[in-house]
Design a binder for these strands. Structure first.
Lengths: 180, 180
DNA sequence: GTTGAAAGCGCCCCATT
DNA sequence: AATGGGGCGCTTTCAAC
């Protein structure tokens, strides 16, 4: 596992809230990120706690939204999603983020969207089955009310083991299939 | 869950390999993406299979790399990672992807990296604790051998519920902390 | 694909510090 | 406030069918 060693020494709590997040929680979260199905007993053995204690801490980490969920990671390409692109969006006049968020939700192929610095108003991450499908998505996006222009950058190949967009339910195999 | 309804009708298998991925596998994968800790028995009840059968299918889905892992999803901001940016990288002459991949692995703050179409040779996704940390990372990247220039786009706010980069072990709380 | 049995685990209560 | 132990029911796992 690639580790964030450059961060050694970064100490907890620079905020108002008590933020009970200690060494044990750290190890538990790390273990669950590596394998979300690890049993509490096994984690407990690794960190020196009983399974009961581990469960309680995990419950608390979920309640405080440090852990937001557990999910299976899938390769989008294994589910028939082979085309990926970033789309810079330019809007007419002032772009109200509220309205932009609405627009974005209309297109399930948009797997991430954010407002950004620089010339563009927003940056979209789009997944499509193939180039034809991507073109269709792009046309759909460009017909949205106040979107003036888009600039697309297609992803060619990944330089890192694609940390596989878990929880991206839009890439879920709702009707798509086709392995490898 | 946002669903990929535009894909209705997309049929399996347009490749050479048998690609044994049916309706049942689809439901199982969807269930595990929603909650990776769901028991095989519960999934079985939902899809009409015994827990044993579900386990065998999940084992096979893992072996064929349709499912690449199970992971806890965390909010990077909850672990002290509050700064996010995309960095376009321009290289001297022809940029060999092999060498680029090496460079990328030297910087754990790079959570995604890919070669892309357009003017830039590569696009990096970078997470840092704060703007100071990001600047430090950027300087580090720019001193790499054949990197000619970079253009950074900072993320301001997300327009979609941040599908939380699971498995991104670089964001793991190895030494960082600080909740909320 | 199923069932059945053994081992392990999740989960809840309660005593302990 | 947080941990550990015990008990019961469910889950996992592996056999056999």
């Amino acid at each position: 596992m690639r580790s964030m060693d450059v961060l050694a020494g970064y100490s907890a709590r620079m905020n108002s809230r008590p933020a009970p997040f200690d060494e044990l929680d750290r190890k538990i979260v790390t273990a669950l990120m590596a394998n979300a199905r690890t049993s509490f007993a096994e984690i407990g053995a690794a960190v020196g706690l009983s399974s009961t204690a581990v469960k309680r801490r995990v419950d608390r980490l979920r309640e405080t939204d440090v852990i937001t969920g557990f999910t299976a990671t899938v390769k989008p390409s294994a589910l028939g999603w082979r085309t990926e692109a970033y789309v810079e969006v330019y809007c007419e006049g002032a772009a109200p983020p509220r309205r932009l968020a609405e627009v974005v939700r209309n297109h399930p192929e948009i797997t991430a969207a954010m407002t950004v610095t620089g010339g563009a108003d927003a940056l979209l991450h789009v997944r499509a089955r193939d180039v034809e499908h991507f073109e269709e998505v792009l046309e759909r996006i460009r017909t949205e009310p106040f979107i003036r222009k888009t600039i697309s950058v297609m992803v060619l190949s990944h330089l890192l083991p694609e940390s596989p967009e878990a929880g991206a339910s839009n890439v879920a195999p709702d009707s798509a299939a086709d392995v490898r």
